[in-house]
């Protein structure tokens, strides 16, 4: 019990399929519901900020959705990296994907794209 409680307070957790939508959309709000822009503004930004403030790692679970559009992931994580810095983001998040493990490398590319383009 004690160990479980410790883990709980040390880590922030986001499961996109539960906390946002099982059917994530495209890039911008104008493209339709559950866009990457919406996910960043409504969930990811605040969760990451809270996590950093508390000195924690933010765990992001990508499993359980119907699939991700490239535009959704690139928009959300590009914005995160632009606002907080790619190295800072990569050091303070942990991505989980048992269904599509190749997504983790793709997201890393989107995060470091922000460094190249800024």
């Amino acid at each position: 019990m004690g160990i479980k409680y410790k883990l709980h307070i040390m880590e922030q957790f986001v499961k996109i399929s539960k906390d946002f939508s099982p059917t994530p959309g495209a890039r911008y709000k104008t493209d339709g519901k559950f866009s990457g822009e919406e996910f960043y503004n409504n969930i990811l930004k605040d969760k990451f900020r809270n996590s950093i403030d508390q000195g924690n790692i933010l765990i992001i679970d990508l499993d359980g959705t119907y699939g991700f559009a490239t535009s959704f992931l690139s928009e959300a994580f590009y914005r995160l990296a632009t606002d907080f810095g790619p190295d800072n983001v990569w050091a303070n998040i942990k991505l989980i994907s048992t269904e599509e493990p190749y997504l983790i490398d793709e997201i890393k590319e989107y995060i470091y794209d922000a460094q190249v383009q800024s």
């Binding site: 959309g25 495209a26 890039r27 911008y28 493209d31 339709g32 991700f68 559009a69 490239t70 535009s71 959704f72 690139s74 793709e106």
Partner: peptide, 8 residues
């Protein structure tokens, strides 16, 4: 990646 990068 190419197809889902296009805005719907």
């Amino acid at each position: 990646n190419e197809v889902t990068n296009v805005n719907p």
